[in-house]
Design a protein around this nucleic acid. Structure first.
Length: 555
RNA sequence: GCCCCCGUAGCUCAGGGGAUAGAGCAUCGGCCUCCGGAGCCGUGUGCGUAGGUUCGAAUCCUACCGGGGGCACCA
């Protein structure tokens, strides 16, 4: 019996009690789902629900009285071993070992699909993240989004949603001009211009381009600049894609800002905004009434000189995404862009959308690297910034992805290289991967002994040890964790869950011998535990896959 | 000045209004005749402050304090 099934049973019992008048409540007032949680304290049973407390006021009855009614009826439900009333009116429920043990079978049968659901079915989500300009290597902050964004994409896909991972890049305009100018300076051996891009990588690129175009320095500056801009962006771009790819992050769409200008999309977006009624003209410029959406001031979208601001380009981009059929536009931004949120929402509203339905801006806080207790500042690659490549080089792909995905994006984090480079248990990713390797090893050994997990003869009631129950209940959590992570856009929940599951498994392993020892004959319990081991391995692997972290069979 | 995020154990962080607030690390002490000791068990300490909402608040609201980030007719 899974928590979902238990929850459904409680709902059914509630409905019956209301129908025959045992509970004075309108059937329509009943919740469609009842929260079932794993109590922190063992004595409180396998599962607990506070439903009696929640309904007490509306039903006009003391919570404990309501609880008693439910207790009596729940106790007769198949698979429920006992129901107790505790404290102000909690219902503490124990599940029969057999009803719980069958989960091992269904997890193994589900395989890769275990943990998936269809809550997001029918939704088309455009997930934009990283979107760093091709003017330098991918910074640490962008790397956080690469890891979190890709994992979020996986989690959303696990709910049945159709997800497009999108990378938007600026390949025109002032930043690129500055980039080209800096390359020219580097090529000519001059110092970086004010506001330009410095760092060793600029020299690398300039030299690489010079190797292909030795004539570059003979050209007039304007001509050389043109070449450098195009060539420089192309090379930087390739590097960015390559380092993201090495991190295991690939995008479905790489969207060029320039195309929005070239196709006239910007102009038509401005026209639609004007028609939408959220704009006005003042001092020769066109303004967006973003204050209606909580912005602290209205924003110019067309300058008094007639040129559109970047907001118009964002508007055109948003419109383009919607026109491509996405019902949900999700954009992941750094904390330094939180000021965009309200004006972006105003844009969506200006097009007649409800921003609460179609647009979501996720803000992630900063990342710092720490080594020997002090912040890391230097990067041999970029001079001042720390890059994706620096991190991967220092800790490897799995640790990098895991370290970035394991924390709530709401908090700024310090990644301690001393921890994440260590191949010991203080390193959470090793802890989880180790559990998977250990599970794999047990299954290998079983296979060597000619033993197989229980098949049709599986007796779920054999898994009655307390540690087996703990493990089964931990396994049963994955679907709920996936749903929560998807709904809340919080992938760190997956990582925390995996750590909890790994720990629960290790405790099981410590007390419950899986394979027969020495001269012991194999018994049904061994086969049942092997099935449980297999189910645990499947669950860990599925969770790790959601984070894009490998699940090694050996370490 | 205004806006956003954070403040939980010595450290790094979990905690979707519920019961006695958790995990890892660090400290100290235990556990290998056989499945991977990269493991397990035990050990002390804590919700920034003050109010409010609620049967019940780390969680929601307000004010203040502390840390980080942002406030362009730049992108």
């Amino acid at each position: 019996m899974t928590p979902e099934e238990l929850s459904a049973s409680i709902v059914a019992v509630l409905r019956d009690a209301v129908r025959d008048g045992a509970i004075a409540l309108d059937e329509a007032a009943l919740p469609s789902a009842v929260t079932v949680e794993r109590p922190k304290v063992r004595e409180h049973g396998d599962y607990a629900t506070n439903i009696a407390l929640q309904l007490a006021k509306r039903a006009g009855a003391p919570p404990r009285e309501l609880a008693a009614t439910l207790q009596e009826r729940l106790a007769t439900v198949d698979g429920i071993a006992s129901v107790d009333i505790a404290g102000p009116g909690f219902l503490n429920i124990r599940v029969e070992a057999g009803a719980q043990g069958v989960l091992a079978r269904s997890i193994v049968d589900a395989g890769d699909a275990y943990g998936r659901n269809d809550l997001g079915a029918g939704h088309r989500i455009n997930l934009e993240f990283v979107s760093a300009n091709p003017t330098g290597p991918v910074t640490l902050a962008s790397t956080r989004w690469a890891a979190v964004g890709d994992a979020l994409g996986r989690v959303l896909e696990a709910t049945g949603a159709e997800v497009t991972r999108e990378y938007y890049f600026n390949d025109a305009g002032a930043q690129i001009d500055r980039f080209g100018g800096s390359l020219l300076a580097a090529a000519q051996g001059k110092p970086t211009p004010d506001g330009g891009y410095a760092g060793a990588y600029m020299l690398d690129i300039a030299n690489a381009i010079l190797a292909d175009r030795p004539d570059l320095l003979d050209l007039h500056d304007d001509e050389a600049l043109k070449v450098l801009r195009v060539e420089g962006v192309a090379r930087m771009w390739e590097e960015i894609r390559q380092s993201l790819h090495e991190l295991g992050v690939d995008f479905d769409v790489y969207f060029s800002e320039r195309t929005l200008h070239e196709t006239g999309a910007v102009e038509s977006a401005i026209e639609r905004l004007r028609a939408g009624g959220l704009t006005y003209t003042a001092a020769g410029a066109l303004w967006l009434r973003s204050t209606s959406y909580g912005d602290d001031k209205d924003r110019v979208i067309v300058r008094s000189n007639g040129r559109p601001t970047y907001i118009s380009v964002d508007a055109a981009y948003y419109l383009d995404k919607r026109a491509r059929g996405f019902d949900r536009v999700v954009i992941m931004l750094g904390a330094d862009h939180h000021g965009y949120v309200n004006r972006y929402r105003a844009l969506a509203a200006g097009f007649g959308d409800d921003p609460d339905q179609t647009l979501e801006l996720l803000i992630g806080q900063m990342v710092n690297l720490v080594k020997d207790g002090a912040p890391v500042r230097m990067s041999k690659r970029a001079g001042t910034v720390i890059t994706l490549e620096d991190l991967v080089e220092a800790v490897g792909v799995d640790a990098a992805r895991y370290a970035l995905a394991r924390y709530s994006v709401d908090s700024s984090i310090d990644i301690d290289l001393d921890i994440w480079t260590r191949a010991t248990s203080d390193n959470p990713v090793f802890y989880v991967q180790y559990a998977h390797a250990r599970l794999s090893s047990i299954l290998r050994n079983a296979s060597d002994l000619g033993l197989a997990p229980a098949g049709d003869d599986f007796d779920p009631a054999l898994l009655s040890h307390e540690r087996e129950g703990d493990l089964l209940r931990a396994l049963a959590e994955l679907p709920r964790i996936v749903s929560a992570a998807a709904e809340l856009r919080e992938v760190h929940r997956i990582a925390r869950y995996l750590e909890d599951l790994a720990s629960t498994f290790h405790r099981f392993y410590d007390e419950c011998r899986v394979l027969p020892r020495g001269d012991e004959p194999p018994e049904p319990l061994h086969a049942a535990r092997l099935l449980l081991v297999q189910a645990t391995r499947v669950t860990l692997a599925n969770g790790l896959r959601l984070l894009g972290v490998s699940a090694p069979d050996r370490m």
